[in-house]
């Protein structure tokens, strides 16, 4: 009772003053932002961790292999007993072959889907197709790899007689299917954000929907579309499991698409599943390859960022 009377007699100002005096709350308010800042800096630490591990171990690699031999060498034979050769170009060639095929598949289909979804489709169709694209984007890459090896390769072999079991074509096509949803949905976002008034202006002048899409919407959304393609390329370069399963493990510096290849990512996987001991040159070579891969994707991501920043149309 006494407590109640006391509270009743206390004015609001006094209550606030009393609350303010509490030490505990003060400490919570002060320390939470610091704790949260530390948590947020873990993502920065992760980046530093990636960059520093790659640099340190790559440095170790270049103590054993001359830098120019790595950069300009056209033969990658790390498992050779008498004279191992570490020239990165064959691995880069493998990666570029797969990426190129993927782009050839994904860009036309992705852009066509984006135009259809944003300019032609009615709500009902959109409600069916968009979840399909989402599902396609959510399928694990190991499943795509299995699909490439056991379905796409045998299918292609029926049309292309000389095609080997491991080749660049089949993983390239499947990587293309994998990055297709990314191009489609990001480009569609870019096109949808073009204001309706611009479309209506063109329609009122008598343009058909196709003309509006091609001559008005596409140019206006170009920066977003280009950025989506570059991001998708970056994803294709870093793709690992599809090329490991269906691409083979023969690093070759040529333009052949029907024979076995090896990409940068597939080499890292090959060494990781093998029994190269800690501290060997082969062990350090995966960091050098990883670092090269990292630089490639970083460049692509910056390019995408620069494109969308530089050529953005403001409405």
């Amino acid at each position: 009772m006494a407590l109640n009377e006391q509270t009743a007699k206390m004015s609001v100002q006094e209550m606030i003053a009393k609350q303010k005096g509490k030490k505990g709350k003060f400490w919570v308010e002060k320390s939470i932002p610091i704790i949260l800042f530390l948590i947020a800096s873990i993502s920065v630490l992760t980046t530093f961790g990636i960059v520093f591990t790659l640099i340190f171990e790559t440095f170790e690699f270049f103590k054993r292999v001359p830098f120019l031999d790595y950069l300009l060498g056209t033969e990658w034979l790390p498992f050779s007993n008498n004279e191992p050769l570490y020239g990165i170009l064959p691995l880069i060639a493998g990666t570029l072959k797969v990426t190129l095929i993927a782009v050839v598949v994904a860009v036309p289909f992705g852009l066509a889907s984006a135009v259809y979804l944003s300019e032609f489709a009615n709500d009902k169709t959109r409600r069916v197709i968009k979840p399909v694209l989402e599902v396609l984007a959510g399928i694990p890459t190991i499943v795509y790899g299995f699909f490439a090896l056991t379905f796409v390769t045998p299918l292609l072999q029926q049309f292309i007689p000389g095609l080997k079991i491991f080749n660049a074509l089949s993983p390239g096509i499947v990587v293309g299917i994998m990055i297709l949803p990314m191009i489609a949905s990001l480009s569609e976002d870019a096109m949808t954000s073009v204001p309706k008034s611009i479309r209506e202006g063109a329609l009122a002048l008598g343009a058909t929907k196709l003309e509006v899409a091609m001559k008005v919407v596409l140019p206006a959304a170009l920066s977003g579309i280009m950025a989506s393609i570059v991001l998708a390329i970056s994803r294709a370069i870093g793709e690992t499991m599809i090329v490991s399963l269906a691409g083979g493990s023969t690093p070759r510096f040529d333009g052949d698409l029907t024979g076995s290849i090896q990409t940068m990512t597939a080499y890292i996987v090959q060494v990781s599943t093998g029994d190269a001991g800690y501290g060997t040159t082969i062990y350090y070579s995966i960091y050098a390859v990883g670092f090269t891969l990292f630089l490639f994707t970083l460049l692509m991501n910056w390019l995408a960022h620069a494109i969308s920043k530089r050529f953005r149309e403001e409405y």
Binding site: A40, S41, S43, V44, T46, T47, G49, I50, T53, L54, E57, L231, S234, I237, G238, E239, T240, T265, I268, V269, S272, I286, Y287, G290, L293, F294, T297, L298, M300, N301, H305
Partner: peptide
């Protein structure tokens, strides 16, 4: 701003490179 930009960049790092980070650290 750096933290924000860094998160965007981190999202673009291939998963196999995260594997190298995990292996080392």
């Amino acid at each position: 701003d750096f933290i924000r930009m860094n998160i965007a960049n981190l999202a673009g790092v291939p998963s196999v490179v995260f594997g190298l980070l995990g292996l080392t650290i």
